[in-house]
């Protein structure tokens, strides 16, 4: 069974066994927050950080965690973001332990800053281990093409 997850002009079709949340943290003290999407192929804990703290500690070798974190409109057009668009597929060479925000033995990370639909994002992916890496890449490459990002409507 697949599930359609949609909010804040971000949409994804989740394969069976995957779950996720699209959220926006409440702003405070004049600050503005932007949407974040988390996807996992294992139970997503309720309390977690935007880049997976609280999640990656629970991952098994067959686990995948994907975070799509939006930066503000001030980041659009900056070199860091504008060099890349949203990847529809990733390869094994894209993953390395040094790309993890928090090094956990066995885990591999992927990180890319990108622009899509005039919005700036960081796509961060963690896989739990190398043992089933090929299968996990297949799962990730089924999810990534189903993610669509629309232009934000003017407020």
């Amino acid at each position: 069974m697949t599930a359609l997850l949609s909010a804040h002009e971000i949409e994804v079709l989740l394969p069976a066994g995957w779950e996720g949340e699209i959220y926006r943290r409440p702003g405070g003290n004049g600050s503005t927050s932007f949407p974040v999407m988390h996807l996992t192929n294992f139970p997503l804990p309720a309390v977690r950080g935007d880049f997976g703290s609280g999640v990656v500690e629970l991952m098994e070798p067959s686990s995948v965690f994907i975070s799509l974190f939006e930066y503000g409109p001030q980041s659009v057009g900056k070199a860091l973001f504008s060099r890349n668009s949203f990847p529809r597929a990733v390869t094994g060479e894209d993953f390395h332990p040094n790309r993890l925000h928090r090094i956990i033995s066995g885990q591999l990370g992927f990180q890319r800053f990108l622009e899509e639909s005039a919005r700036a994002f960081c796509l961060y992916i963690v896989v739990g281990g190398r043992a089933k890496f090929g299968g996990l890449l297949g799962e990730i490459n089924r999810v990534l093409p189903s993610i669509s990002i629309a232009t934000t409507r003017p407020v």
Binding site: A16, G20, E21, P43
Partner: peptide
């Protein structure tokens, strides 16, 4: 936001 929970994972 939106949340999807799987019962098979």
């Amino acid at each position: 936001g939106t949340l999807a929970i799987s019962m098979t994972n």
